[in-house]
Design a protein around this nucleic acid. Sequence first.
RNA 1: GUAAUUGUAGCUCAGUUGGUUAGAGCGUCGGAUUGUGGUUCCGAAGGUCGCGGGUUCGAGCCCCGUCUUUUACCCCA
Length: 452
Amino acid sequence: MQKPLVVKGTRDFSPQEMAKRNYIFDTIRQVYKLFGYKQIETPAMESLSTLMGKYGEEGDKLLFKILNSGDYLSGVTDDELTAKNALRMTRSISEKGLRYDLTVPFARYVVMHRNDITFPFKRYQIQPVWRADRPQKGRYREFFQCDADVVGSDSLMNEVELIQIIDEVFKRLQVRVCIKINNRKILSGIAEIIGEPDKIVDITVAIDKLDKIGLDKVNEELRAKGIADQAIEKLKPVLLLQGTNEQKLDTLRSTLASSEIGLKGVEEMEFILKKATLLHMNSDIDLDLTLARGLNYYTGAIIEVKALDVEIGSITGGGRYDNLTGIFGLPNVSGVGISFGADRIFDVLNQLNLYPDSSMQGTQVLFVNFGETEADYILPIISQFRQTGISAELYPEADKMKKQMSYANANTIPYVAIVGENEMRENKITLKDMLSGEQQSLSVTDSIKLFL
RNA sequence: GUAAUUGUAGCUCAGUUGGUUAGAGCGUCGGAUUGUGGUUCCGAAGGUCGCGGGUUCGAGCCCCGUCUUUUACCCCA
């Protein structure tokens, strides 16, 4: 016998878990629709030429590659076989891969359908993505992203709208969060001011770790990357930036006075923060310069959301990326988007037990089956229940009542309808409340009313 | 890719320096109870001790390999 297993980093979802997950997906979907975003889907697999080189060297390694169909070794030369160079070999034996995120397939979609799209185009997409990295806390190899993007509009109002969406979703899910916001242009300005404009990636990766490893370790890492002590010293006041968002902006404005791009970033940030104050948002919004998470394709705002009550890393991320479609031959289309990490939000809601009872509601009434005569009598009645929107089921076999009751219990069905000889004679239904154990004899219409 | 860590019944876990036939609780199924579940009582089923190799008279326990779990780093949702 073969032992059943799920693949590393993947999970099965039970009916109960699916009810919870759908509650999350439905909430996000409703809010997206409310703000005028339209849904699309793209295939699970994409051509490797679409995916490769979009996520950096590290990302290429984390792509799941799909072997070519048929004899995938037919195109491989003996030299390639003996060379044992995995990277080159991959190109010969695999031309498709599983999508790594939803943004790059979306960029491909926009370019391919540019003639059918009216810009600005607001789309949302809720689908799984796959990454071949090591699973650990809050990290899976198959997980769902819930993306919303706007392409073809440079207006910062889009950023404001996306922040509003984030606030609305977490308000509905009753999760307390902090929305962190930064701007790539400010980071560029900082790199410029300290005289290391080429090292912006190294700098941002290092300062991203500030709250995790502390200032000394960050400086150590910067030094290791070849950044001068002078520059590190100049960086210090920026890293230790304190106070309200307004105070931070003031400090930045004077520090970045000589950097054109830096000032542009400050200006953008100010616009977004000002508009956000008009929104009466539920969550705090916080200018955070240490927010520099990877994704080198962001060019403007960078957004990240952290749950306040659970330690789990970011549960939503996003930002502006100019010219993402450029690589596919459609230049000068700007995009900005966010992505809810449904699987992490699922973990958060599980830990805080934030699911409303209504989201877990399944069958409302189970009809006991006493045999064919009674079942025949029940069939039209149960149809009446369903037509009024009450989810009802008839137990499929005339098992012992104990077993049928246990079934209702195991499935947390709140009511059991008992219709046997007596009830048929009196044209009534005995309805048992499974929580209190009480039961009452009602006509069909009265029992339906009970649920409405 | 680097470094730890876990694996025994469906689930959670015991299992003594290496020594007879590997245990418990929960769950499942059956019965007490042929029109009443969630309580109680009785009973039963369920195991290649992750897998492969080695040491030993003898391995769940020791050694090697491999897979797996969880976690840190890298990177990321």
